[in-house]
Write a protein that binds this DNA or RNA. Structure first.
Ligand SMILES: [Mn+2]
Ligand SMILES: [Mn+2]
Ligand SMILES: [Mn+2]
Ligand SMILES: [Mn+2]
Lengths: 220, 220
DNA sequence: AATTAAATTTAGACAAATCTAAAATTAAAA
DNA sequence: TTTTAATTTTAGATTTGTCTAAATTTAATT
């Protein structure tokens, strides 16, 4: 099956949202796609027609198995291209998302699998997100949000949940990137902001909003 | 300037046709793009509106400088991606065209230039066609059609003018590919077919139609 | 030169994807 | 439990790119 770029974008966004929330709402999807709720409703009808999602008017929606499979293939393409751009073409990790947003819609399955092999079957993209394999299998890693990390416990940045360029710019400014080892040296209950220490650097302060979107795992 | 995939396809096809014919006709373009003359007329109006071509109704058309520049950028992308697919992803030269037909519409200029550098600034694509550089400069090579090659003169295949998969399949069957050294051992005036010899192989016969589309250059 | 044929353009339609404004439904507040 | 507010859907339009069928213009034949 081959879907339009717009359909693929919708499938992917629904997949991400339902991973966080179970059921997805029209407004949430419209916000994620920077489009209008009315446009989302239009697309939902088409996706339901094609039996890619479960949907009844006014009651929210979610992907069925077929829809998930399709979404995962798009995610696979997106992340493999991001990996290619960073590792082979020397792009920065904060400038590949938009380009991958276009490349992910190239349809050749053979191309994706060859690219995968060429890259040595990587299992995480430049932002630390897992890359599904050819059969759509994920290796899901146990990672927590930086805001849940206990005080003074060393951890390693493993993924960035919100990948807007504004977010990435802020992190880069604070010398935080994939693989950075850090710990929380202080918590401020007033606004839930955190003071974070990175080895041999002055500490930096992160808002709760930022911390929530930085995912970490135990340091080895 | 960024143009739609359809506009880019039209620009590229017009460029190729006017290279051969000077002025381009509606029917020729429709045939090249596998579309209808009426659709071509519609698009011509838009391209003229955007000042990419010279066009007056019923009188044919051709790209202006702006249009040529745009077309060359598309050709550059197409051929760089073809080179990538063959040299890095191990595709055969006869299976890359369709995929490149999609990849050529990815818009990032930076991506193309990085890809170019990654590939080592190649100057011909897998079919022997020259790859324009970042400024749109071509290195045009003096090549002639196999049908114009004198009898018994050794030459080397440098490009294939018609790159349909049917054509490429036929050539592959006859062991003719880019770089193949050959000579014409006999000409048959009745139908302008040719007997062609490739070193250490039994001679093969090619129709005039095939020979016209095989381009050769002097053997070093 | 008149007629026929070919090429090209116009007129009108359609599908996909999006939008705004208004209506319908559901959720929250008084 | 009314009333108000938020969410979601519908109705109707718009843009882009395409098509068929008919009309127009140009080219080729008799
Ligand atoms: Mn996308
Ligand atoms: Mn990513
Ligand atoms: Mn194309
Ligand atoms: Mn080529």
């Amino acid at each position: 099956m081959k879907y339009s770029a717009s359909k693929e974008n919708h499938l992917k966004a629904i997949f991400h949202l339902q991973h966080e929330q179970g059921i997805v709402t029209t407004n949430a999807l419209a916000a994620a796609l920077q489009t209008r709720p009315a446009s989302v409703t239009d697309m939902l009808k088409k996706l339901k027609e094609q039996k890619l999602l479960l949907y009844e008017r006014y009651k929210g929606f979610r992907l069925n198995n077929e829809g998930k499979k399709a979404a995962i293939q798009v995610i696979r393409k997106h992340r493999l291209w991001e990996y290619f751009l960073v590792k082979k073409l020397q792009f920065g990790w904060d400038e590949v998302h938009e380009i991958a947003e276009e490349l992910e819609h190239i349809s050749s399955k053979k191309l994706v699998d060859r690219l995968d092999a060429f890259l040595g079957f990587p299992d995480t993209d430049p932002h630390g997100d897992p890359i599904p394999d050819s059969q759509g299998r994920f290796l899901q890693r146990r990672q927590i949000s930086l805001s849940e990390l206990p005080l003074n416990k060393l951890a390693q940045v493993s993924a960035i949940a919100s990948q807007t360029s504004e977010m990435l710019e802020l992190l880069q400014y604070n010398h935080i990137q994939l693989g950075t080892r850090l710990l929380i040296s202080r918590k401020f209950p007033f606004d839930n902001s955190l003071e974070v220490k990175i080895r041999s650097r002055p500490p930096v302060t992160l808002s709760a909003q930022v911390a929530k979107n930085v995912l970490v795992k135990d340091d080895e």
